[in-house]
Simulated assay, not measured.
Amino acid sequence: MAVFTPVSLDDLSGWITQFSLGKALAVKGISSGIENSNFFITTESGEYVLTLFEKLSFEQLPFYLELMRHLAQRNVLVPAPIPNRSGSIINALNGKPASIVTKLEGAYQPKPEPVHCAEVGAMLAKMHLAAQDFGIRQPNLRGLPWWRETAPVVLPYLDAGTQQMLRAEMQFQEDFAASEIYPQLPNGPVHADLFRDNAMFVGTRLTGFFDFYFAGCDTWLFDLAVTVNDWCIDLATGALDVARVQAMLDAYHAVRPFGAAEQQAWSAMLRAAALRFWLSRLYDFYLPRAAEMLTPHDPTHFERILRLRVNGAVPPLPGPN
Rank of each mutant, 00 (worst) to 15 (best):
T5A: 03
V7K: 04
V7Y: 04
D11A: 08
G14A: 09
G14I: 08
W15S: 09
I16P: 11
T17I: 11
L25P: 06
L25C: 11
V27K: 07
V27S: 02
I34C: 09
E35C: 09
N36W: 07
N38I: 06
F39T: 12
F39V: 15
I41G: 15
G46V: 07
E47R: 15
E47V: 13
L50N: 09
L56W: 11
S57K: 15
P62L: 14
F63Y: 13
Y64L: 12
L67Q: 00
M68F: 07
R69E: 10
A72T: 00
N75C: 02
V76Q: 03
V76T: 03
V78F: 01
P81V: 14
P81H: 13
P81R: 11
P81S: 15
N84L: 13
S86T: 13
A92D: 06
L93F: 14
N94F: 15
N94L: 14
K96D: 09
K96Q: 08
A98F: 14
S99L: 09
I100Y: 14
E105M: 10
Y108P: 13
P112C: 05
V115H: 12
V115C: 06
H116S: 02
V120L: 11
V120Q: 03
G121E: 08
A122T: 05
M127L: 11
M127Y: 10
A130E: 00
A130F: 00
Q132L: 01
F134T: 00
F134D: 00
Q138E: 09
R142I: 11
W147M: 13
R148A: 11
A151Q: 00
V154L: 04
Y157N: 02
L158K: 00
D159G: 04
A160E: 14
G161W: 02
G161N: 03
Q163G: 05
M165Q: 09
R167V: 06
A168R: 00
E169V: 05
Q171G: 13
F172P: 05
F172G: 05
E174H: 13
D175C: 06
F176M: 10
A178E: 12
E180L: 05
I181H: 04
Y182N: 12
Q184R: 14
L185M: 10
H191C: 10
H191N: 04
A192T: 01
D193C: 07
F195H: 02
M200R: 11
F201W: 12
T204S: 13
G208K: 05
F212D: 03
Y213I: 14
A215F: 01
L221E: 08
V226Y: 07
T227N: 03
V228W: 08
N229F: 09
D230E: 03
I233F: 12
A239R: 08
L240D: 01
Q246F: 01
L249D: 04
A251K: 07
A254I: 01
A260D: 05
A261G: 11
L270D: 02
R271L: 03
R271Q: 07
A272Q: 09
A272M: 05
W278S: 13
S280T: 10
L282V: 05
Y283R: 08
L287V: 12
A290W: 15
A290V: 15
A291P: 09
L294N: 14
L294D: 12
P296F: 04
P296S: 01
P296D: 05
H297T: 12
E303T: 07
I305Q: 08
L308Y: 02
L308P: 06
R309C: 03
V310Q: 12
P318I: 02
P320K: 07
P320Q: 04
N321P: 15
